[in-house]
Amino acid sequence: MPVPGQTGGPAAVELRGVSRTFGRGASARPVLAGIDLEIAAGETVAVLGPSGSGKSTLLRLVAGPDTPTDGTVLVDGEPVRDMDRRAAVVFQDARLMAWRSIASNVAFGLPRTGMPRAERRAEVARWLEVVGLEGFGRHRPSQVSGGMAQRAALARALVRRPGVLLLDEPFAALDALTRLRMQDLLDEVRSAARTTILLVTHDVDEALQLADRIVLLSPGPAASITAALDVPVPRPRERGDLELVPLRTDLLHRLGVGRTQVTSPSLSLPSLPHKEPLR
């Protein structure tokens, strides 16, 4: 859906030999090491990895508040600057400002200058509608559910028309059913948003549902990419699509979860893996 006034469109992202180490000397704590990753404009990539593997650090390097110790991060061929305007972040918690209405929280995502008031209002209304919050603009954050708050946070990011949308475990704090609804919503919103998406998650099914490509991080410290796997099924996908079962089993196996033998495709509930303790 092309929109007048839209700038840029989806951006390509490239990480070249990126490492990030916190601290120095004896107390140095390497978090990421030697990350090479290319994301095509408009692609959706899910970064999957165990807790503490540096997923969020990776995302912060692309967003801009953090810079790599080594290597470069490029958005559309240009290095990422401090808090890059081409990127928009959705955090795990909605982080709405309690003193602002939902609409005003969404408007916080707009660039601060160069847009007439009427247009700003129209933009906010449009994205509220896209995320299914029409009629809730005047509500206060404390008056809406966690899922609705997260929708508002998504609208706040999308209203920026980001080249890259960075999602940091955006649905992890929601209840299971709301999480599924939000995944569907993101799938729908994607056509309107025209943006590259980098999704950090520890939920294998979420990655399978939403991503074109899944990147696996090794457990930290000094995490690196152990695999980058294309998801073979076109979107939007059926949950529990049998074609995804082998990939799912493979992913779980690589993450150290699941039976060693490949799960039978005839299982009626592929979304309920038998969990074994982490190795």
Partner: peptide
């Protein structure tokens, strides 16, 4: 601090 981070992530610094 999460609100500070939000503000900075959305381009607010200094007086803004």
């Amino acid at each position: 601090p999460r609100l500070r981070e939000l503000g900075r992530a959305y381009g607010r610094r200094g007086p803004a």
